[in-house]
Design a protein around this nucleic acid. Structure first.
Lengths: 240, 240
DNA sequence: CGGCGTTGTTGCGCCAGAGCAAACTTTGGC
DNA sequence: GCCAAAGTTTGCTCTGGCGCAACAACGCCG
């Protein structure tokens, strides 16, 4: 196993407040691991053997219902932790993690967690903040699904993805990993058909530019306006 | 301030693993507090001055959108923590907490949190589990809203409420606090009209019994079957 | 005990968006 | 360079459940 330079991960939220020695001690227990595109890192229901920090690439976490429908829970960006089932008291992974691009992650055996936390309580404190943030995001999503139209939800989803994993390109901001209409549908609680229609509409209006598993936001600001719009109002006001 | 008997709260998840002395030390910083029915404990956006453990009664946590729509995030049952904004790194409360019944809670000043965690790291570990559970619940809700019909979502919501805060009564299980059609609508992402129609239907079928802000599940099992049902299938099979 | 605010019920029309079907396009494998 | 698979687009139909409206029942307060 290649030893990792502590300075590369020292700034991550999980390790905030740690010195080089402590960091070294923690990293000594990790192994780094390549994740080939479209391969599962772990599967929902599987025994939670490890937890991870993503170094490069992108990972999709999704849940499958008993009826076989899939819902995308989130996308993991570099620097984020995932698979922390053990830390929150779960025996098994509650979702499936799939690399959407060739990726690299650090992995610790779950058995190391209690020991590490015992020695470095700040790990629990940092993880608490991370999980808390995710809870906020999840609540935001519930609120959106309860109160907004599909078009607005899609707009919000794209804006969040762009913020989290956007790459500046010539004509705007590109979402920096392959993402299909189907994926967006599963993030927003709609169907790929409706997503396709919506994106087509936006493309005609010049708000975005898109292709196969590729989306560029050309006018993020206009998209934001659209996302905030109340069902009633419209850009071109209706004459009474 | 009345000193609380540590043995009354020793079994709570937040305090699991603590001895009587430590518990005493933690409790010494708390004050207990009566919450009158329909009064806000704290408001969304307000400075997160305290965090709480509910001792008696029930508290509703809800979020309000910029457009003024409300969504019920959860109901807090006795023994649960709420208002832990500080622990997850928030300056302000992300939701409003309202007592739905006359209630009693313990309150700690948020400033005490870092100090308590420093001295008793297990607090962070326990809170991490709690917040993790809530994250699971929130994800469950997202999955339900993405994949299920309104009727099934309402059924699931009632079953969860009954499990969390159900009281055995003569004809079934009663939800042990006042809850309106509107509240259920805000939990399930629908309108009070649809909730009313759905509950009326169930009442006619003898599945529930309900009145003003009062719901009794008479046939929890049948409700569960209904909740798991796929849109396609039906109790009385259609003849082709 | 009567009036009034709050909560719940129900009928009706409409539409956003799901479901279905089919064709088209891109891309990677061989 | 060709073919199969995966992803996308688009038209049409149908419907769950929302929005509106009016009313009814309950319980609180003076």
């Amino acid at each position: 196993m290649a030893t990792l330079d502590p300075s590369l991960v020292a700034h991550l939220p999980l390790f905030s407040g740690f010195g080089a020695d402590q960091l070294g001690e923690i990293l000594r227990e990790a192994r780094s691991l390549r994740l080939a595109k479209n391969n599962a890192v772990f599967e929902q229901g599987e025994d939670a053997h490890s937890f991870f920090v993503l170094l490069h690439g992108h990972v999709r976490a999704s849940k499958t219902t008993p009826a076989g429908e899939q819902v995308v829970v989130r996308y993991v960006a570099p620097g984020e932790t995932f698979g922390v089932a053990t830390a929150i008291g779960l025996q098994r992974y509650p979702a499936t993690a799939t690399a959407v691009d060739d990726s690299v992650a650090l992995a610790w055996p779950s058995t190391a967690w209690p020991r590490l936390v015992e020695k470095f309580p700040a790990l629990a404190v940092n993880t608490l903040q991370t999980v808390g943030n995710r809870l906020q995001e999840s609540h935001t999503r519930v609120v959106e699904m309860s109160t907004q139209q599909v078009e607005q939800r899609i707009a919000h989803a794209l804006l969040r993805l762009a913020k989290q994993s956007g790459r500046k390109v010539e004509h705007g901001v590109e979402i920096d990993f392959p993402i299909s209409r189907q994926d967006i549908a599963q993030m927003t609680g709609t169907t790929l058909h409706t997503v396709s229609r919506t994106l087509s509409g936006w493309e005609q209006r010049g708000l975005i530019e898109s292709g196969r598993q590729r989306i560029v936001l050309r006018e993020p600001h206009k998209l934001l306006v659209l996302a905030e719009e109340t069902p009633g109002e419209s850009t071109s006001p209706t004459r009474p």
